[in-house]
Structure formats: C-alpha cells, structure tokens
Design a protein around this nucleic acid. Structure first.
Length: 412
RNA sequence: GCGGGAGUAGCUCAGUUGGUUAGAGCGCCAGAUUGUGAUUCUGGAUGUCGCCGGUUCAAUUCCGGUCUCUCGCCCCA
C-alpha cells in the first residue's frame, strides 16, 4: 500500500469532475430553493449510536459498512453513511420541532466501507431533501415532484425510470409480514440460501432477490397491497393520483422494498440501466417512525437522497467554465496583471499566463476558450492603447486603455 | 464480505517465445517565427513495465503474494 495512493474507494475530484459535481448540486439546490427548501449542513460524523439506532441493528449498513472509530475522548464516532439520521438528530438537538413543517436540503460526502465498484465508492457524495412534519400524501407528491424536476433539469428525464411502492403503515406491515412468511415457509426448499437468511432478518427483501429460483417463487407470493389497511391503501392511492395529476411518469413495482428499517408507506427509486449493477440514482421514502424511534415527539417525515457520482456519470458533457478574457503582455507582466485585476474587479473573468512568448500565449488563450485577447504591445501602449482581439471573429482593433474595462464589462 | 477480469509514459495502447539504451499515436515543453491562435517541420522531457518476494547468469516477461481498478453477488446513492 503506497502512501501516495488514495485510500481504497476514495478519489480526487479534479477540476473537470468537480465542476460537474458543482453543477449538479447547484441545479438541485436551485430547484429545491424554488420549492421552499433551505440548506442544512450537519456534521459528517456523529456518535455511532445515532446510526446504529436509526438504521436498524441488523442492516448491512450498520453491521458491516460503517466507518467507526474511537476518538480521543473514548467515544465511538461514525462517519455518516447517509444523511437522514443526522438531519433527524439535528432536528431533535436543535429544537426544530418548533418550526414544523420543515423543508431541508443537504449535500456532501457519505462514507460506507463496501467493496468499491463503478458508481460505488467508500467516500461518495449525496444530495438529498427531507420534509418533516407533514403526514399528508401531498407531501410525498411534492417531494417526488422535486426529484423529477431536478432530474429533468439535469437532462436525465429520458434516462431514468421512477418505480414506486408502498410499505404500508405499521399494522399493514405486521400483517403482511405474517402472510409473506407463511407463504415463503411453504416454499423454503425452493429458495436460495441467501433468501432463507433474509426470511429471518428482513423477509421483504426476498421479494427483490435476483436469484432465478427465488423469482419463480416470489412471482406467486402475496403482495403487500392485499394486506394494506384502508388508511394505508388510501394514502398510496393519493400519492399515485398526485403523480398522475402532475404528469410525472411512474410505475408501481409491488416488489420494491427498502433496506433501512425506518421506512413506511411510500418507497421509491429512480433507476437507470446505464450503470450496471448500481442502477439506483435517487431513492427515498416516508419515515414516519424515525424521529419517535430516536426519542423525539412522533414526527412524520419523507425524503430522498441521490448519488452525485452516479448522476455525474449520466451527464455527458461537463458544463463549460465561463469564457475568460486573456491578457497577453509582451513586455511588462506586472502591467498585465494590473489590467487583469481591474477587469476582474469589474466582474470580468480574466486569465493571464505567467510565461511564454506571444505565440504561446495566444495558443493558450485559444485553449482556454477565451472570448477576447488584450494584447499589450509597446507601440500601442506608447499611444495609450491596447489591441483588443476578438478570438471568435479573428479580428483586432486598437482601443484606448482608459475605456477597456467598461468596454469588456459591457461585452460580457 | 464472496467469485471472475485487468494493471506498460499525462491519455489510448503495442511489445518482449526471459537477454544489453522499453515503443507508437495523442498530449506536454522548446525552437523554426525576439508582435499573433491553424497546419507543417525540428528537437526535448516523462516510465521505479502497480508493489513485494521467489526461480534464473539474467525478470517488464515465468511463479507466489499483495495493492488498486473493473464485472457479477451481497447491499446500496
């Protein structure tokens, strides 16, 4: 293991890639802001308890994927594997129950000790939203509409598919669990080893097994929809009706389940076929029980998170940086920098190379996609002028140095 | 965590049936042109052949281990 290598599953965001990430986060936050979501930034680590309690003691995330360590005070600390638990904790420790309903947007790095693959990293980035204090299915619809708006704005509307399901309320889920377990027990000899384990830990997971034998069994399994209480059924109908009313395309997938314990009612995923086994690009659901589970007042919540790296892989061209003006000194570099600074002060993007002859500097200007070059030739300067070259039109005029800033600030 | 594939220059890759200075294209730097973006021409730099060990007179090449990436599984954004 070389000390100069990044830790397994981590990577550097070089400028092109960083720009892509920033564009995604900016587009998402712009959409979220228009819908009334404000940004929240919680710490990237919490006491281990925060995640262990909320994610479920037996979930994979808790049992094998957490980056946990003991700090110098002897406390067990964990790098956050997802965003919702930290937001819920902030909600409680910040006394935010006074401000319900709350619309929150977050972004930042998450950490999971998994085996890396394309689209799966140990440090990755998510954007996400949480809507707290709303038990109305309209909340689900609005949060889904926001996700759809963001993906559409990123140009991914045609590349993703929304699948949605309901996990029911607590009574529905308990009843369904019994029904499903009874059914699976009758076919246990046809189930894969993994699914037999799933029956003990999280029976719903058997439903979305990729094993062919499991799929045959599951095809005839009872569905949660038949175990729903009238309330849960109405709730789900209100969500799907809302999506239809807003013209958001979706498909009900009765076998869609969620890994984390805190979900109830609505569960959904936006998936793509373009990323191999890591096809989920944005996912979330309702978690009415979470805050109560953490010891707070019963507070409904719904939200989602999206993987920025996965979104970035679906976006073809990174957005272009703003086109600069290239300042090209021929003699005194300091004069060039002075002019560059006055242009920058006026809001113009300016680049000036530190070395190179005129030809090199012009080539560099072209490479930077500069719009104009300001050439500081001694002859013009002697007359108080500079040459202003339009690099698109390949034309050049002499302009007084005095009016240069105004002229270029206007051209922007 | 389990199973498969890969690793040679900044990038894409060739190559060595084990043998002296390891190559191409693109890119980069410099010059031809001490005042102009393309093309062309000339010159140049960059590799511990992923890492460690073994076999051998000799290993980038063969063997073992390891690391990283990658595909699938588990799971997930």
């Amino acid at each position: 293991m070389s000390a100069l290598q990044p830790v397994r599953g981590t990577h550097d965001l070089l400028p092109d890639e960083a720009r892509r990430h920033r564009a995604i986060e900016a587009a998402a936050f712009a959409c979220a802001g228009r819908a009334g979501f404000g940004e929240i930034a919680t710490p990237i680590f919490e006491f281990t308890e925060v995640f262990a309690r909320t994610l479920g003691e037996t979930s994979d995330v808790v049992t094998k994927e957490m980056y946990s360590f003991t700090d110098r005070s002897g406390d067990s600390i964990t790098l956050r594997p997802e965003g919702t638990a930290g937001v819920a904790r902030a909600f409680l420790s910040g006394g935010l129950a006074q401000h319900l309903p709350l619309k929150l947007f977050y972004r930042g790095p998450m950490f999971r000790h998994e085996r890396p693959q394309k689209g799966r990293l140990r440090q990755f980035h998510q954007i996400g939203v949480e809507l707290l204090g709303v038990d109305n299915p309209l909340g689900d619809v609005e949060v889904l509409a926001l996700a759809w708006r963001i993906l559409s704005d990123l140009g991914l509307g045609a590349k993703v598919r929304l699948e949605i399901n309901t996990l029911g309320d607590a009574p529905s889920r308990a009843a369904y669990r019994e029904t499903l377990l009874a059914f699976l027990s009758g076919h246990i000899d046809q189930l894969s080893q993994e699914s037999r384990q799933r029956m003990e830990r999280n029976p719903l997971r058997v439903l979305d097994s990729k094993d062919e034998g499991d799929k045959r069994v599951v095809a005839n399994a009872p569905l949660i929809h038949d175990s729903l209480t009238p309330e849960a059924r109405d709730f789900f109908a209100a969500v799907t009706n809302g999506l239809e009313a807003l013209g958001i395309p979706f498909e009900v997938n009765p076998r869609l389940v969620r890994g984390l314990d805190y979900y109830s009612h609505t569960a959904f995923e936006f998936t793509t076929t373009a990323l191999g086994a890591q096809g989920t690009v944005l996912a979330g659901g309702r978690y009415d029980g979470l805050i109560g589970m953490m010891g707070g007042p019963p507070t409904p919540g719904i939200g989602w998170a999206a993987g920025v790296e996965r979104l970035a892989m679906l976006i073809d061209e990174p957005p272009m940086p703003p086109r600069p003006v290239a300042v090209v000194p021929m003699g005194d570099g300091l004069l060039g920098l002075k002019i560059a600074e006055s242009l920058r002060a006026a809001g113009v993007s300016v680049d000036m190379a530190f070395s190179g002859n005129l030809k090199k500097r012009m080539a560099r200007a072209a490479k930077l996609n500069a719009r104009f070059a300001v050439l500081l030739g001694e002859e013009e300067l002697a007359r108080g002028h500079v040459s202003l070259r339009d690099l698109d039109a390949a034309t050049q005029t002499e302009v007084p140095l005095d009016g240069l800033v105004e002229r270029l600030a206007q051209a922007e």
